[in-house]
């Protein structure tokens, strides 16, 4: 086991080097780092309270005191974008976490165990994925009610098939490998085999998929907010800011331009990182 971990450590280093070498991936990482800083230190960095209503100063364009302008209630857009990063990333990360855990578990079990378990789970996943993700998430949101927590669950559940499928595909390839047969003959039970041997080899696929899913989740959150089931007032994620700004598009375009740019930048960054990881880890996403 020790040797295996040493190997892993150096592999990590190798992958890191490969990742940074690609310029776009490096840019993506930088953006992500900035994002993390905003999320953690948002309280100090934002000039105003994002929810401070100041109606006399509503709908003002970008200026020195309000670099991104103000919205229809006089709230500072820059502060709202900074705080919005928090909510948007929270939704995205939690949703991806949910789908990652659930999807991976399903994919692992289904791919490794095979037989009728595989059949049932596969059919279930296929059924779920035969349905447009947005509508599925919308139905779940409608059931649970609007609000941030439920959007996370809705998007998380809707993305499960993506993870499950990919993990299952990888597990099918890995199953046949020598060290698995060794582990079986040594007498480890399937749970241990899955966690210790299969999972690490599948992890590269999961990581790539996770970063791409995170990007996609941000767009999904924007769509859900646009349809009215997203984060509730007066807090705002970037998606809800787009929804409100939509009404003011010709009068106060800065209300939608800046959150829109923020979304594009972060989604791009995550996509760059994901693509970079895919190249660096030399992953061919296998599907059956």
């Amino acid at each position: 086991m020790k040797r295996f971990e040493e190997l892993k450590a150096s592999n990590f280093y190798k992958v890191w080097r490969k990742l940074i070498r690609r310029r776009v991936a490096a840019i993506g990482l930088v953006v992500c780092a900035i994002l993390v800083i905003l999320v953690i230190f948002g309280d100090f960095l934002s000039p105003y309270d994002p929810q401070a209503i100041n109606t006399p100063e509503a709908l003002q364009g970008p200026s020195l005191s309000h670099p991104f302008g103000t919205d229809e209630m006089g709230r500072d857009v820059l502060s709202r974008v900074i705080y919005g990063a928090r909510l948007t990333m929270l939704v995205s990360v939690v949703a991806v976490a949910i789908s990652l855990v659930a999807g991976t578990a399903l994919g692992l079990v289904s791919g490794y165990v095979g037989g009728w378990v595989d059949l049932v789970i596969s059919k279930f996943i296929e059924a779920l994925s035969a349905f447009p993700m947005v509508m599925f998430a919308l139905t779940i949101s409608a059931i649970l009610g609007p609000g941030m927590r439920n959007v996370m669950i809705a998007i998380g559940v809707a993305y499960v098939p993506a993870f499950a499928r990919i993990v299952r595909g990888m597990v099918l390839t890995v199953r046949e490998r020598e060290y698995i047969e060794n582990a079986v003959s040594v007498g480890l039970n399937w749970f241990e085999i899955l966690i210790r041997y299969v999972l690490p080899n599948v992890s590269s696929v999961i990581i790539v998929q996770a970063s791409l899913a995170a990007a996609s989740a941000i767009l999904s959150e924007a769509t859900m907010s646009f349809l009215g089931v997203g984060v509730q007032a007066p807090e705002a994620s970037w998606g809800t800011m787009l929804k409100t700004g939509y009404n003011y598009l010709s009068m106060a375009p800065w209300m939608s331009v800046f959150p829109g740019i923020a979304i594009v930048v972060v989604v791009l960054a995550l996509n760059f990182v994901g693509d970079g990881l895919r190249d660096a880890l030399d992953v061919r996403l296998k599907m059956d």
């Binding site: 767009l219 769509t223 787009l242 939509y246 598009l249 979304i263 594009v264 930048v265 989604v267």
Partner: peptide
Amino acid sequence: SMVGVAMPAFWVGMLLIILFST
């Protein structure tokens, strides 16, 4: 093309309406 993937479709739609229709 990467930017194209990153933009919310409804945002693009509304911008197009403002430009080409209004």
